[in-house]
Design a protein around this nucleic acid. Structure first.
Lengths: 207, 207
DNA sequence: ATTATCTATAGATCTATAGATAATGC
DNA sequence: ATTATCTATAGATCTATAGATAATGC
């Protein structure tokens, strides 16, 4: 068999698995459905990835890498002014979520349903978050000393930003029902939330 | 058999099912585990509730009723000032979430994994939300006309409030890891978020 | 006579593997 | 000789039911 064919089958299973796991979680996902969606026999699933758990780990690792890159990039240049850093974080974070709308709910769901299976994700978070929070706190304290903003807690500020960005996407069906299809036009909703959340956070910081 | 025994078995299965469904969702929940946790034979599960789906519907209906009451009560008196209404909504909503920390994630997870199964919930939301949003918008417009606050969009304001209140509880394990166990003391975290979120929202409304 | 409970098992999935077969690279 | 693919099926769960048995109310 040509190498191309090989890559194809493996890639097709990976793509099908990504969709199946993200939309249904580990227990809800069926390896038979994955094989069917990929258009290969079920035996191929086990030939390429041995077990359901191994393929799940692979998918979750890919998603963590994606998230990690997004987080690191989202910060941009820490030498920028506080308002620029916040604008970057909010814009990049929101764009990442809009491009991966199933990811937050998936991660949260898996963490709760099986802490062991998502240990890798929590480890990554544990390595990255505290450093970033500390840098952000320095920046806030520095601008506060010059009277440019209030001295707020960086941890709570980050929690506010992430909450404001993520929740609407995590609860999209309910939000759309409660707020008259306000997310129907994805593009304009995204732009609106960028402006809205930046505004909310900057008002919170205003002296 | 005495009626007491009857109620006991039924109630024990209900309590066990509530915990199983809320923590693992519909597909993750096992009727055998529910019977085991309840301390009854598995046949009793089917004797009292016939099918897994019927029991699930019953649990979800109970939870919706609970949520509906909480929402209606949370508003308090619509004749209060805007700031009082907002304080009531935030405090009551946060207390409800803290008392039912698994509920938001459960509802969001079930809505995405099976829209049909959560139609009841979305129907309720559809009946309640628009009315409340409209009343809130009136109140905002009224105070804005007197120059007491900015004329903000009630829909976005509600989305902000719910996001700020709910997200930390939905993502508790990740939030705790990222923000150094800030939720470890549940009581003080709750009080802190009440003050913090009220402050965030009121600054957003300030002219 | 009715209601509650138990044991045993049918029937449906789902994950995983065994073993045969076909296609490629050397 | 190795890699990829298929068919068939084992083995493990899980939901649900059948049918017998015991306890209550009338």
């Amino acid at each position: 068999m040509v190498k191309q064919q090989d890559k194809d089958t493996e890639a097709k299973i990976l793509r099908a698995a990504e969709h199946e796991f993200l939309s249904k979680g580990f227990v809800g996902a069926r390896t038979t459905s994955i094989a069917e969606t990929a258009g290969v026999t079920h035996a191929m699933f086990h030939y390429y990835f041995r077990t359901k758990e191994k393929l799940f780990d692979r998918i979750i690792s890919e998603k963590i890498a994606l998230l990690k890159n997004a987080v690191i990039e989202s910060v941009g240049d820490m030498n920028d002014s506080l308002s620029e850093v916040i604008r970057n974080v909010i814009n990049n974070h929101l764009e990442f979520i809009a491009a991966n709308p199933d990811l937050p709910r998936f991660l949260v769901g898996e963490i709760f349903s099986n802490p062991g299976r998502s240990a890798t994700f929590l480890d990554s978070l544990h390595r990255i978050a505290p450093t970033f929070i500390a840098e952000l706190q320095d920046k806030i304290d520095c601008e506060a000393a010059k009277g440019l903003c209030r001295r707020v807690d960086a941890k709570m500020l980050m929690l506010d930003i992430v909450s404001l960005n993520v929740f609407a996407y995590m609860a999209a069906p309910a939000v759309n029902v409660a707020l008259c299809d306000c997310m129907a036009d994805a593009e304009s909703f995204l732009e609106m939330r960028k402006a809205e959340n930046y505004d909310t956070i900057m008002r919170k910081l205003k002296p």
